[in-house]
Amino acid sequence: MASAPETLQVPRGRSSLERTRGSGLLDRILKWGLTALSIGVILLIAYFFEVLIADSRPVFAQTGFFSFVFNSEWVPSQALYGALPLLVGTLITSAIALVIGVPIAVATALYITELASPRVRAPLTILVELLAAVPSVVYGLWGFFFLIPKLKPAEQWFSDTFAFLPFVGGTVSGPNYFIAGLILAIMIIPIVSAISREVMTTVPRENKEAALALGATRWEMIRMAVLPYSKGGITGGAMLGLGRAIGETIAVTIVIGNAPEIGKTIFSQGYSLAAVIANEFGEAASDKVHRAALIAAGLVLFLLTLAINALARYFVNRASRGQRAASKPAAGMAG
């Protein structure tokens, strides 16, 4: 060998392979550093939870957890903290968002994966995803200056015509539950659509071809092969959307009307848990119980999203586990 490579050779003898004191030190530093970082993340969230509980204690001490959640009078000036109107507002707007948003999101996913020509698939996907790029406050701005005035006549007509339905009728107020729900529906379409698309693309081709080979029309194929297979995933996606809708703050704050009462119809003003925190934190700085009440509202919000996201994960995981189990024998046969 030439002289230059000679110096590069690992020297012979016992010492060359033995561990030196410095060797592996950086490895150990990196390993334990990263481990500490990861444990830090767990501790941070544990602390986060602890702080929320500790700092909401004053209001629970005053009213008790049960009456905090189920009393319907929220009047901070009289130290009355019943969060039911807020909870109801959060649930009603989120429910409206699901009823409007999920069918539309699933339809976009079906159209993109099964019906659209390959050329328009990518542009359509990008357009749907653009909905997620619009910030919450911009939805609020648009909802306040465009949706509220333009939709009011239509809402009033609907309210008068269908007054016999429950929760419909009477005078429509400008900002209301329905507008907030509609905006939330638009905001959850991208995520529900993305997850539905993901599960629909994993439907095995054999299943779809089996349906078509039996003489099914395109729609019958979707009903026989695509929808049953992706049901779990779609449910999970809808749950994730629900989690988003429940925690959404600014857009709702702008268009819900901020009236701490339980509205009689879906066209009444209301309030939500997140909106009350955004609006009242300023005045609450000096009042310990008021502040605790807002933190408690945050805690309820947190627990609600935690439960819903756990449910969402359960559905999504079950769907993907089912798919893995279903695809395994197929892979085995191929190999």
Binding site: V10, S16, L17, E18, R19, S23
Partner: peptide
């Protein structure tokens, strides 16, 4: 053993083994 040297000896640096 690499010649008479055991690469599974606990004193050995795995990284050095792989260089050789």
């Amino acid at each position: 053993k690499l010649d008479d040297f055991d690469v599974y000896d606990p004193k050995v640096d795995v990284v050095a083994v792989r260089r050789a």
